[in-house]
C-alpha cells in the first residue's frame, strides 16, 4: 500500500507559466469569474482535437485551479467547445446541442485544419450555421495552452 496522494503531491507536475493568446474574445458576461464549465462536442474533426481536449485534463495544465471544469452534459455547461468542421449529418445534432445550452452561454469554435488546403476541405463551414454567442473562433489551433488562454478571457479574470 502506497500513500498515492502524498506521492503525487511530491511530483509537482503543474506548470507555472502564464497562458496568453492574441485571439479576441467577444463576451460581456461577467458571472463566470469563479467557475466555468465546458463541454466539448466533436462535430467531425479528425480526432486529434478530441485527444487534445483529453490532454487538457492533464496535471500539467491543472485547469481546476482556474475554476475550469468539464461538464458531463451540455445542459450543465457554460461554454460549448465546437471541435472541428461539422459534417452534414452533425449539423442538426450541433444545433440541437446549442439549443440545450442554458442561458447565458458562449460557444468557442476550434479548428486546426491546414488553411493552405482550404479547397479540399470537407464538411460545412461553421460560419454558415449562424450559431448564437460564438465568442471566439480559433482557426489554427495548435496546443491546449491557447485554449486555456481563451477560456481565461471568457472568465474575465486573470490566472
Amino acid at each position: 500500500m502506497k500513500w498515492w496522494p502524498v506521492w503525487g503531491l511530491t511530483k509537482r507536475l503543474t506548470e507555472r507559466k502564464p497562458y496568453a493568446t492574441e485571439q479576441t474574445v467577444e463576451t460581456k458576461i461577467k458571472i463566470f469569474r469563479k467557475s466555468l464549465h465546458i463541454y466539448p462536442i466533436d462535430v467531425g474533426n479528425s480526432n486529434d482535437l478530441n485527444l487534445d481536449i483529453r490532454a487538457l485534463q492533464a496535471p500539467q495544465y491543472n485547469i481546476h485551479r482556474f475554476g475550469i471544469f468539464f461538464a458531463d452534459v451540455p445542459r450543465h455547461a457554460d461554454v460549448l467547445l465546437v471541435l472541428g468542421r461539422p459534417t452534414e449529418k452533425m449539423v442538426p445534432v450541433l444545433t440541437e446541442t446549442v439549443n440545450q445550452m442554458p442561458e447565458p452561454f458562449s460557444i468557442v469554435v476550434v479548428e486546426n485544419e491546414d488553411p493552405t488546403r482550404r479547397k479540399s476541405q470537407t464538411g460545412v463551414g461553421i460560419k454558415s450555421l449562424n450559431l448564437p454567442n460564438v465568442v471566439a473562433h480559433l482557426t489554427n489551433y495548435r496546443e491546449p495552452g491557447e485554449l486555456i488562454a481563451v477560456l481565461l478571457k471568457i472568465k474575465g479574470g486573470t490566472n
Partner: peptide, 11 residues
C-alpha cells in the same frame, strides 16, 4: 423559461 426536448445525445 425555454422548453426543450429531453437531452439524449443530441437527437
Amino acid at each position: 423559461s425555454r422548453k426543450v426536448q429531453a437531452w439524449n445525445g443530441g437527437l
